[in-house]
Design a protein around this nucleic acid. Structure first.
Length: 291
DNA sequence: CTTAGGG
DNA sequence: CCCTAAG
């Protein structure tokens, strides 16, 4: 939090929210909340607010008329169930203005909306949400605007990123996430849980083709699913086998019919044995050649 | 480019 | 999902 406040510099500070209520950020208060005991992470949040004890220093070489826009009386925004993940250096060729400090909030929307990206007080005339990369991606592959590269590349800019609460150690400041080659930030693909229908298709394909021909499985059952690679299918099968072995209480997400999970185990057992037989044959062949 | 596995 | 050594 200190680091973030420091980087935000002018006029802004980061406040701590506990269960939606603002709390003091002194050691005593934080200790009492139990945050440091790693057991109330879900109730932790952050907010951006004007920093009264500090006049905005000029971050820009020239004048910075935009910073003043952040000087609003009310907290600019509140993030619940979100943790500050990192302060990320944004390469200038992504089009983020030097004076732009955008707080990007990722909040979960109801059913299958995926992640929604919200920009809070970018400090510039217009929000630059999309300039930070393809941060909005729906289940329908919405066309995301490409990065604007028509900006001054001589300076650095930073963006604040918050993500849903999860890792306790997430407050670490990570190094710039830039691809040294083409200076492209590689966006992690959004999580897309497999539907029961997809599982059905996967199981059916593996029953027929086995567990060593994922390329064929992809072509056979997911040829038109652009976002499912054969590696994804291989990974999904791995988790399916695991899911089928654990107790139903330990399973998460949309429940997979037991009937399907049974087929997973059966199929897995069958092809495992099949694979073992194959390797046995190879070994015998090699042995023959040595004799 | 695919497989196969660990991260 | 990602990363990647091997084939």
């Amino acid at each position: 939090m200190e680091a973030v406040t420091a980087i935000l510099g002018g006029g802004l500070r980061v406040g701590v929210l506990l269960q939606g209520k603002k709390v003091r950020d002194d050691n005593k208060t934080l200790l009492q909340t139990g945050i440091s005991h790693n057991n109330q992470l879900d109730s932790l949040g952050f907010c951006l607010e004007p920093n009264p004890s500090q006049t905005p220093p000029s971050l820009c070489p020239g004048d910075s008329p935009f910073l003043l826009k952040c000087d609003t009386p009310e907290p600019l925004s509140r993030v619940k169930n979100a943790k500050l993940l990192a302060i990320i250096d944004v390469p200038m060729d992504l089009g983020v203005d030097f004076c732009t400090y955008g707080l990007m909030l990722f909040t979960r929307c109801p059913p299958t909306a995926g992640l929604v990206c919200q920009s809070i007080c970018t400090g510039s005339p217009e929000p630059h949400v999309n300039n930070l990369g393809n941060c909005i991606e729906s289940d329908h592959d919405l066309a995301s605007s490409p990065a604007d590269t028509s900006m001054d590349k001589s300076t650095n800019s930073k963006a604040l990123v918050a993500v849903p609460a999860m890792n306790a150690e997430a407050l670490a400041v990570v190094p710039a996430n830039r691809k040294s080659k083409q200076s492209e930030i590689v966006q992690r693909r959004i999580r897309r849980p497999f539907s029961v229908a997809e599982v059905e298709a996967l199981v059916q394909a593996v029953e027929k083709l086995g567990t060593g021909r994922w390329r064929d499985v992809k072509l056979r059952a997911f040829d038109n699913a652009k976002h499912r690679t054969y590696v994804d299918l291989k990974d999904k099968w791995k988790t399916l086998v695991h899911t089928a072995r654990i107790s139903p209480q330990q399973r998460r997400g949309e429940p997979v019919p037991q009937e399907l999970l049974d087929r997973v185990l059966t199929t897995h057992a069958y092809w495992s044995q099949q694979q073992a037989n194959q390797q046995l044959k190879h070994q015998q062949a090699e042995t023959c050649l040595l004799l």
